[in-house]
Design a protein around this nucleic acid. Structure first.
Lengths: 346, 346
DNA sequence: TTGTAAGCGTTATCAT
DNA sequence: ATGATAACGCTTACAA
């Protein structure tokens, strides 16, 4: 039914009885136009419901006005929040955000590199999430601007937006120690990941600050996923009560949730028998019973910051990343009811 | 540093000592090419890391190979799952998904209409979520193909992918009734929404099937958001115990979660004092204590289905929606521990 | 102030 | 089997 060809600038020009360049001048105000003719043009635009063909524009100006957002798992609210932040900031600047959720597609890095090279995407915002090989990311960065979120690749200064994980980790660990906990087990993230390393360092700093030896604190290595939290909680807690840690410090909320689940299934009470803390402050963490003590990361802001960072790079008279260090946003500890003094303390 | 112009087809042609048309023939195999020259071309492509400029392609073929995904709230896992489904199906067919998260941007409908008209988007997948005015959507649909997900606009047959909400609602209500509950209060969704209406109808059918009068079942109208679940649970439950409903049937999980929260805050035990059921089967619902009895909607599949539906419409030698009814996927009830017989039953 | 015309990088139609 | 060449719809010198 609706088979009318979409109007082009030529149509507008004809309707307004001016030349195409005049139309262009009006639309971008990139040239002088007599007020009366400008009106005619705007009228024609309205009447024909004209809006300029973006493919043609892109072709001309050699940029797609679109950026890619690579996110490993949208159902993870931390990522969803970042995505919203990215989207908001980008739309504000007239740039579209293309969703790239690898999921089960291993072809991704190459795929995105191609998207960059074919100028469908001007740049990419990359959330590595539960771990991508740094080499893949670096490879991708060869094809166009890439901004990392919540991750860094030491040695190569790709622009990145991160949180002060270390400070947050130190703070939350200090809190646990202040409650009197001494037998603490850490459930850490993948060793290859920068955030995991930072958080672990923070935990250890807090222990060191008490005069104790950080090496005496057991660290189990997880993968930031809920399942590994469950499995490692079992490993940590399924021992004689006398040796059992009184607190489990998890490097993210998902693993903390897994740990909580294990405790439930094993009949351990939280926080009476064991305290659990997380990291991220996912919205869901507030819904759990007991509520999780955790570290808040300003996810949405990180997304917005990343988008702006990328767009600035793109705006910079078509250039390369400015060699400034990563933008660092700060974290804050959210203390909730899942940390209590260890059993047997006064 | 990386200031080399991206290679064009011309460069490839020169490098391979053939004409541009030959290159094009090879790349799309749209013409006969001698095997030996084809090799030369492919080599050149590899060497130069050429990949065709998509803006130029789009311009030529008058399609963007991109669709929009309008989603009200990504942190809602139901939507996140749908988004993943859409993305997966689209990428499979070589189409990009542009994320459009209205958030606080009221300019959206007009904005998307423009994106369609300017051919940045070939079509749009629309999740109305917690309620958009049907008129806005219809207005949008004037500018290009639109597929609705989890919503329908009665009277206008926009293509849509929905679930059999009514059946699911009937089933879950039947389950509650079978447990012996008789004082049931419904916390429904926004009356303007099709899903809300369907679910309510399902609940009432189940009641009617027992021989009781559906009108005797109180219905409170919420907005599908957690807060309204909390507020309405208070309204339903903050009455003398003798009149208090023994079960709260919520039209979605978010409101059920809100209701659960209220119960906690009010010291009511779930499911001993009051049973709560939801609708959606969000991943988070499985983490709650007690776990929520709910109705599973195949969210990811719905997303994929919607994407395929839209892409089929677009493929149809550039046409209009086929006037078939909406695709209907089915729901299934997930029974979990938040439903128990009412207090005082044998 | 306005219009003409030359690209932007492809694809597709035509000769060769 | 191959190669000119004319669109596609827009921007932007350059002319008028």
């Amino acid at each position: 039914m609706n088979n009318r060809r979409r109007p082009t600038m030529k149509d507008v020009a004809k309707h307004a009885r001016v030349s195409v360049s005049t139309v262009s001048y009006v639309l971008n105000d990139s040239g002088p136009v007599a007020p009366e003719r400008r009106e005619r043009v705007l009228d024609a635009v309205r009447v024909l419901e004209y809006s300029p063909n973006e493919s043609a524009r892109s072709l001309k100006r050699r940029s797609a006005s679109a950026i890619g957002l690579v996110v490993p798992d949208l159902t993870n609210q931390f990522f969803a929040l970042i995505a919203e932040g990215v989207q908001g900031a980008a739309i504000e600047r007239g740039v579209l955000v293309v969703l790239c959720a690898p999921e089960a597609t291993p072809l991704t890095e190459a795929h995105h590199a191609k998207l960059l090279r074919s100028q469908r995407l001007d740049g990419v915002i990359y959330l590595t999430g539960t771990g991508t090989l740094p080499t893949a990311v670096l490879e991708l960065a060869r094809s166009g601007p890439v901004v990392l979120v919540d991750e860094q690749i030491p040695g190569f200064d790709l622009p990145a937006v991160v949180c002060d994980s270390r400070r947050g980790a130190r703070a939350v660990a200090r809190h646990v120690l202040e409650q009197g906990h001494r037998r603490i087990t850490v459930i850490g993230g993948p060793v290859a990941m920068w955030t995991a390393e930072q958080r672990l360092a923070g935990y250890r700093e807090a222990v060191a600050a008490t005069g104790a030896d950080p090496d005496s604190m057991p660290v189990l290595v997880g993968d930031y996923r809920q399942d590994s939290g469950f499995a490692l909680a079992r490993r940590a807690l399924d021992v004689p009560a006398a040796h059992r840690p009184t607190a489990l410090v998890c490097a993210n909320d998902l693993m903390a949730i897994g740990a909580l689940e294990y405790c439930k299934s094993a009949g351990l009470r939280v926080p009476e028998d064991v305290s659990i803390v997380g990291f991220d402050d996912l919205p869901v963490s507030a819904l759990l019973t007991p509520r999780l003590t955790t570290v808040r990361q300003p996810a949405r802001e990180m997304g917005a910051e990343a988008a702006n960072c990328l767009l600035d790079i793109l705006a910079k008279d078509d250039g390369n990343p400015l060699p400034s260090g990563p933008a660092v946003l700060s974290t804050s500890v959210e203390i909730r009811e899942s940390v209590a003094p260890p059993a047997g303390s006064p």
